[in-house]
């Protein structure tokens, strides 16, 4: 078992299973579950519950010819390709978001780099690269921010986060994550609203860097 100490909240796994999470958060849930056996078990438990509710529903009759159409096409419809496999530090869901390629990092200053994976009205997901002993600018959030460590570790006001750990930061948290000494810290970070930086200049840069 991995020694993950910071997990996803149960409700978020349940929302993923129910199909109610946006793209960015779904990505973090899938990536964390890849790294965390406990949350995988949690997800399987939620899916078992979902399966029971699904099975207990009142059935809704389908078109009379649907079954014949499905039976006729069982061996003719090509299977869609599987999600790319986990590669190095990147879970398969992240590899899919990277379209199977290495991240294309953009410099943010101070040695920090990022690679935006997705950005839409529901939020954004990106990879962050933070050299050892470098701090991410102090920031708060309008909504929720999830940060999953893929390499190295960081620490902030709330604790220490190593590979597989996920930090769930609500709007109330103003925090300053600092990468710990050693290998650069690489994180998958997702928000359901743009970040708010406390200092002026990063706030100006925010629209440009889409963070």
């Amino acid at each position: 078992m991995n020694t993950v100490t910071h997990h996803l909240p149960d409700w978020m796994i349940r929302a993923y299973v129910a199909g109610g999470l946006g793209r960015a958060f779904s990505l973090v849930v899938a990536a964390h579950v890849t790294l965390c056996d406990e949350c995988r078990a949690q997800m399987e438990g939620e899916e078992a519950s979902g399966g029971i509710v699904f099975e207990d529903q009142r059935p809704e009759a389908v078109a009379v010819d649907l079954k014949a159409r499905v039976m006729a096409s069982l061996d003719t419809v090509p299977a869609s390709p599987a999600q790319p496999a986990q590669q190095g530090i990147y879970p398969g869901a992240v590899m899919a978001a990277l379209k199977g390629r290495a991240p294309r990092w953009r410099t943010l200053g101070g040695g920090i780099r990022q690679a935006v994976l997705s950005h839409d009205a529901e939020g954004s997901a990106r990879l962050l690269y933070i050299p050892g002993r470098v701090a991410v600018p102090d920031h708060g959030h309008k909504g929720l921010e999830l940060t999953l460590v893929l390499q190295g570790s960081f620490a902030d006001e709330t604790g220490r986060f190593a590979v597989g750990d996920v930090e769930v930061a609500g709007a109330e948290l103003e925090h300053q994550p600092i990468a710990e000494q050693g290998a650069p810290c690489i994180c998958l970070a997702a928000t359901d609203a743009p970040l708010r930086f406390s200092s002026f200049v990063p706030r100006l840069l925010q629209p440009i860097f889409r963070i």
Binding site: V17, E47, I52, E55
Partner: peptide, 9 residues
């Protein structure tokens, strides 16, 4: 997984 959970997913 039971069949129900697998097909639900």
């Amino acid at each position: 997984a039971p069949a129900s959970a697998w097909i639900y997913r």
